[in-house]
Structure formats: structure tokens, C-alpha cells
Amino acid sequence: MTFVESQITIVGAGNLGTSLVKGLIDSGNYQPSDFTLTRRNTAKLLGLKEKGFAVTANNIKGIEGSNVIFLAVLPQKVDVVLKEISRSINSNQLIISLVSGVKVKDIQFILGDDIPIVRAMPNTAISIRESMTCIATNDKWSARIPEVKEMFELVGETVVINEEQMISATALCACGIAFFLRAIRAASQGGNEIDFHASEALKIAAQTAKGAASLLIANNSHPEDEIDKVTSPKGCTIAGLNEMEHNGFSSSFIKGITVSAKQARGLYSEE
């Protein structure tokens, strides 16, 4: 059996878990019958159940027969879930944890040392196969990284990092989706103020942001290299950039990311 032929359970199929499922289905490598989705309120999964996904509120039942188990619950709830499934899981099942702030050793403390565990931090763009996913584990399970990377490369880009960097990945990669969306919203509001209808401004802002990101990726360039191409002495671009910086654009963005990382670090310990 190859990795893409695995039977998969999503424990805690909320926004991120269902986004992952949608992306994997759209990759063409999986069918609804390959998935079991668990959630306390299964009514929220009714639409997916009607499409052929197995749905249950029972986590123990949900992991039966699965080769791959994604943990997609809140950090504050993960210990309860792990204790619930600890007696039913076996070493032939791979745990892929999407839970922020919960280390491999934390999971091993409850499940035992013989259960393979890899951590992954994607973002909700995984639903359209445009995620940036950071992957990490400890030395014992490093041999499982390639198969996890194979799966996430079906739904976007991946980078393998040290486990110590996973908190930072949460802030920049997972939370980062919201930060960039807020920047696009601000741009669209500016467009609305100067002349455009709201829908026009949002379309223009979103496509412009997509183009800016695509330039960096396609050219493997630094943002300032691309900025230099559209700025001229006494021009309108540099005037706008300077005004943004005078009002703390970059410093606010940086501070938001660092504060987000600090908050993520404490989520697992919160009651």
C-alpha cells in the first residue's frame, strides 16, 4: 500500500481538518470513502456525510482500520482525545498532529513511544491546494517525513523544519493567512475610498496581492527587488510606501506575528 492509498481519519474535523480533506479530494488521489471524520457535533459534517464520507462522534470507532490519523483538535482538548484513543491505537497507525504547541514528546507521553508521530502545520489554503505546510518530528520518526511530505505536496508547498520552529510556523504560516487577508482587506478599503465600488476594489486588491506573491515565487526574488521596479523618484508608489511606514505598517505586521507566536506557545497549557 502506498501512502496515497491509505485509509485516513481526521480526529476533530473542524475548519482545518475539512479544508485538508477538500484539498486531498481535489488532488484526484483520494475518494470520500478513504476518509473517516470525527467531531462532537456531527450535524456540522452532514454535507460531507451526504457526499460519502464516514462521519462519527466516536473517536475510538473513527480510528479503527485507519493507517493515518490526523489530530486536528484544539490544543486545550488534545490530552483528552489522546487518552481516549490511547488503548485503541497501534504502531501500524501514523499520527500526524496539526495541533499547535503540542510537541511529539507530549503526544508520546500519553500514547507511548512505539506510535509514529509527525507534526504538520498547514493553513486553510489547503482547501484549494495552495497551502504552505511546515513538517517536523523527532529523530526517532524522521524516516516517516518523506511520506508525510508526499501527502502535503498534493495540496501545496512544504518545508521540513526543526520541531523547535513549529510555534513560529504556526504564527507565520497558519495565522499568516489571516494577516495577509487583513492586509488585502485594508487595500480594498483604500480602493473603495478613492474611487472603486467595494466588490471591484476587493477583486483588484486580491489579484494584485496574488500577483505580488507570484512574482516572488516565480523569480525567487526579494520583495525589495520587485518594489524597486515600480518606484521612481518623487513618484506615487514611494509616496504611498513612505506614508504606510510612517504609520507603522511593517512594525505592526512584525509585531502581530511575534505576538501570535507568543500566544501560540501558551495554548497547550491553557485550560
Rank of each mutant, 00 (worst) to 15 (best):
T2S: 10
F3N: 08
F3E: 04
V4P: 00
E5A: 12
E5L: 09
E5M: 10
S6D: 05
S6C: 05
Q7D: 04
I8P: 00
T9W: 01
V11C: 15
G14F: 03
L16V: 07
L16C: 07
G28D: 02
S33T: 00
F35K: 00
T36E: 07
N41D: 15
K44I: 12
K49M: 02
K49C: 02
K49L: 00
K51M: 14
K51I: 14
T56Y: 00
N59V: 08
N59K: 08
S66P: 05
I69N: 02
F70A: 05
V73K: 04
V73P: 05
L74P: 02
P75C: 14
K77C: 14
V78E: 09
V78C: 09
E84K: 11
I85A: 01
N90D: 06
N92C: 08
S100L: 15
S100T: 15
G101R: 00
V102F: 10
V102W: 05
K103I: 14
K103D: 11
V104C: 07
I107R: 00
Q108S: 14
I110T: 11
L111E: 10
A120I: 08
P122L: 01
A125K: 00
E130V: 02
C134Q: 03
I135H: 06
K140G: 05
S142Q: 14
V148M: 01
V148L: 01
K149V: 09
E150G: 08
M151L: 15
M151K: 12
E153H: 13
V155P: 01
V159T: 14
V159I: 15
L181K: 12
L181R: 11
A183C: 15
A183M: 15
R185E: 12
A186F: 10
A186M: 13
Q189C: 12
G190Q: 11
H197G: 11
H197Y: 08
E200Y: 11
A201S: 06
K203R: 11
A206M: 09
T208W: 05
A213C: 15
S214W: 02
L215F: 05
L216M: 13
I217E: 15
N219W: 07
P223C: 01
E224Y: 14
D228C: 15
K229F: 04
V230P: 03
S232N: 01
I238D: 03
I238N: 05
I238P: 02
I238M: 06
M244H: 12
G248D: 05
I254K: 05
K255V: 08
V259D: 12
K262E: 14
A264K: 01
R265A: 10
Y268H: 12
Y268I: 09
S269C: 10
S269T: 11
E271T: 06
